[in-house]
Amino acid sequence: MAIVGVLGIGMIKIYQFSHTQAPNSQMPIAKIQSQKNQVRSVAALGRVEPQGEVITIGGSVGERIDKLLVQEGQQVKVGDVLAYLDSYQEQLAAKNAAATQLQEARNRMKAESMFGKAQIAEAESRIGQIKTPQMSEIVAQKATIEGIEVDLQAKQKDLERFTYLHNQGAISQQSLDDKVLEVRTKQNELNNAKATLAKLEQGRSTDLLNAQTQVRSAQASLQLAESKVQVESANSNLKLAIARLERTIIRTPQSGQILKIFAHSGEAISDQGILQIGNTKQMYVVAEVYETDVSRVKVGQTAVISSNALPKDIIGVVEQIGLKIGKKDVLNTDPAAKIDARVVEVKIRLTDSQLVAGLTNLEVNVLIKP
């Protein structure tokens, strides 16, 4: 009986021990699974910044701001004028003077061109005046010569006939001499007519040559006058003046919000520049992921952004993973944190930019989920 009692008590203890240890045996498995899930996520510190980062807009160090046209928090568009430098008025006057000189040069060019073209037209009209009338005179003179030649031929035939009759004794010497005189007179008339024709042709040739020379001279004078009017030089001076003027006008290179102003009207530009601008309509978080964890970060992963300064967590999406390893920029307040840790910057696009639009450079906690 005693032995049976002892065995019964032993079985009861074994039963109780097995049932009390079973739930505890499951706890390490759950903890291991939770630890595995946590290991698969990547935690990092990060900073908030606008899309395209914060841009510092500056100018020549030491030059003063004549007029600042914007204020902090103002939204601006690409090409908007932000400020005028102190040298703006001087460069504006130089640009206006260059524009006036260019206009004067163009006016002179126009006047010289009109005058030169008028001279060319006059010289060309002389050629027309020479060609038609003088050619008519030459044609008429040639017709006169032809008529004289016909008369001369007729008189020469009469002379031959009278010579034959004189030899036959049919006419007197006086009659023959009269015919000889007529032939000589007509021959002289023909010679004079030919001389006149030659003179007309020579005169026409000389007049044409002179008129053509006048045309070429007028054309050369026009080219010389146009070359002396330095339109291209004046145009180059205007372009240079415009370029110098533009250097005194500070324009925004991108649309965004004025985040910080370093130099106001009347102040000199320092090494900090004039102001900072950023596109706060779309905010990003730059997470500094340890180099040992970056292999587990992929583009498209979801990230949870948290901070005591935020009313709630913000969701983001990994958009870009840096290609360079560097030192941390965001320092943890924990004195035990590694300040010389090597990290890779991961850019996360936020789905709700409004919560952090006015919190550029805010330090946040980042948890990138697998």
Results as ranks from 00 to 15, higher is better:
10 G>V: 15
283 M>T: 05
21 Q>T: 11
230 Q>K: 15
351 T>Y: 13
141 Q>K: 10
347 K>C: 00
147 G>Y: 08
60 S>M: 05
358 G>S: 06
248 T>D: 02
350 L>P: 01
282 Q>F: 13
251 R>G: 00
104 E>L: 15
167 N>I: 01
255 S>H: 08
118 A>I: 14
204 R>A: 13
171 I>E: 03
140 A>M: 05
336 A>H: 06
97 A>S: 12
91 Q>A: 13
333 T>P: 11
349 R>I: 01
104 E>M: 12
1 M>C: 09
247 R>G: 13
29 I>V: 10
11 M>S: 14
248 T>V: 09
144 T>N: 03
239 K>H: 09
98 A>G: 05
355 L>H: 13
22 A>V: 10
183 V>I: 03
29 I>T: 06
334 D>Y: 13
238 L>V: 04
157 K>F: 10
25 S>Q: 14
231 V>L: 07
260 K>C: 00
47 R>K: 15
223 Q>H: 12
1 M>W: 09
321 I>D: 00
55 I>C: 03
96 N>R: 12
335 P>I: 06
296 R>M: 01
105 A>W: 05
141 Q>N: 09
363 E>Y: 14
168 Q>V: 14
113 S>F: 12
257 Q>L: 09
241 A>L: 07
151 D>K: 15
133 P>N: 09
248 T>I: 07
370 P>V: 07
314 I>Q: 01
288 E>A: 01
124 E>N: 10
107 N>C: 07
342 R>Q: 06
144 T>Q: 06
285 V>M: 00
365 N>D: 10
34 S>R: 12
12 I>Q: 08
66 D>S: 03
256 G>F: 11
37 N>I: 04
343 V>K: 09
162 F>L: 15
315 I>V: 15
285 V>F: 07
48 V>F: 00
9 I>C: 10
139 V>M: 10
294 V>A: 00
215 V>Q: 08
153 Q>M: 04
229 V>I: 09
197 L>H: 13
237 N>V: 04
340 D>K: 03
323 L>I: 12
48 V>Y: 00
251 R>T: 06
297 V>F: 02
72 E>I: 14
215 V>M: 06
353 S>E: 09
316 G>P: 01
150 V>A: 11
140 A>S: 13
91 Q>H: 15
196 T>G: 11
237 N>D: 12
211 A>H: 06
197 L>F: 14
152 L>T: 02
54 V>I: 06
240 L>N: 10
297 V>C: 03
225 A>W: 08
300 G>I: 06
184 R>E: 06
209 L>Y: 11
344 V>N: 00
265 S>R: 00
180 V>T: 09
10 G>D: 08
147 G>S: 08
188 N>M: 03
27 M>K: 15
138 I>G: 07
100 T>L: 06
